[in-house]
């Protein structure tokens, strides 16, 4: 299943990447804490890749190292052939788990933030902002402030703020973690639409197996901390798909397979000592 075509267009690449945190102040022990890796991964241009794993396994660390928000302790990261280190390269957009909308700006100004920074001319900016607002279904809320919107709508604002900059690699760090299950399915559809329309490479971090199984072309199952990929599963979904595939037989198979790989890891993350025995039950 770990299908690797001979000729693939590698968009981003991680080689032997690890991340070790020095001791957290006040944590008592002065030992360094390994948080991630080693990780080797190629992201293919235009694919939708999801990362699932137990909580605290280092998924977010993985995303931040890939984005250039954190430096790897060892190994290398590259994006479009150029090394990434300590700075977020142009062309990468990130949507965070926390609500990162700016409460002091209207929805319109939130979305226009990056374009203003880049000095995009007014007519062009207006066109792109309106386009992003329309695409994310925010047209009627352009003049509203984020505080007047629901959590899901605020997350759309953040996605629109990223989308408007036309990133070629979009990193989504559990963007729907705080939303209810139904809203999450619908937001999944939005992300699929976004992915198809922009043609960007998308990397989604999630703790929800069904979300990963429904959205991704490939799914990386991550072990308990320090996070490593214990398996990468290709789903084989057609490019044109939506949340109705949760009814497909293959969806159940993929979700089941993921859980089979991750159950033991999740137990480890919960702190069970006799993991092997429990996992074997």
């Amino acid at each position: 299943m770990n299908a690797a075509p001979v000729q693939r267009d590698v968009h981003a690449e991680l080689k032997g990447v690890t991340r070790i945190y020095s001791a957290v102040p006040g944590a008592g022990a002065k030992l360094p804490v390994p948080a991630l890796g080693p990780i080797d991964l190629d992201l293919v241009r235009g694919e939708f890749f999801a990362v699932v794993g137990p909580s605290g396994c280092g998924k977010s660390t993985f995303l931040e190292v890939l984005a250039g928000l954190q430096k790897p302790s060892a190994g290398s990261v590259s994006f479009e052939g150029k090394p990434v280190s300590g700075q977020v390269p142009e062309g990468i957009g990130v949507v965070f788990q926390e609500d990162a909308s700016f409460p002091w700006l209207t929805v319109w100004d939130n979305v226009a933030f990056g374009l203003r920074r880049n000095g995009v001319a007014a007519p062009e900016m207006r066109r792109r902002v309106e386009d992003a607002l329309a695409f994310m279904g925010l047209k009627d809320f352009a003049r509203a402030f984020p505080s007047q919107l629901s959590g899901g709508m605020r997350q759309r604002v953040c996605i629109a703020r990223t989308l408007v900059l036309q990133p070629r690699l979009i990193l989504l760090d559990e963007p729907f973690g705080a939303l209810d299950a139904q809203t999450r399915l619908l937001m999944g559809d939005e992300v699929l639409r976004l992915w198809r329309r922009t043609g960007a490479t998308v990397l989604l971090i999630t703790h929800a197996l069904d979300e990963a199984a429904m959205l991704a072309d490939r799914i990386g199952a991550m072990s308990a901390r320090p996070g490593r990929f214990i398996e990468v599963i290709a789903t084989g979904w057609p490019r044109e798909r939506d949340s109705t595939i949760v009814g497909a037989a293959a969806f159940g198979e993929i979700t089941g397979r993921l859980w089979e790989r991750l159950r033991g890891e999740s137990l480890k993350a919960l702190g069970h000592s006799d993991v092997a025995a429990l996992a074997a039950e």
Binding site: V88, E90, V94, F96, R117
Partner: peptide
Amino acid sequence: VPRVLGKVARVHRLGRIA
């Protein structure tokens, strides 16, 4: 100030003063 704003700033490649 939410910590995530610091990350947003870096994604937008904002300098310290900005």
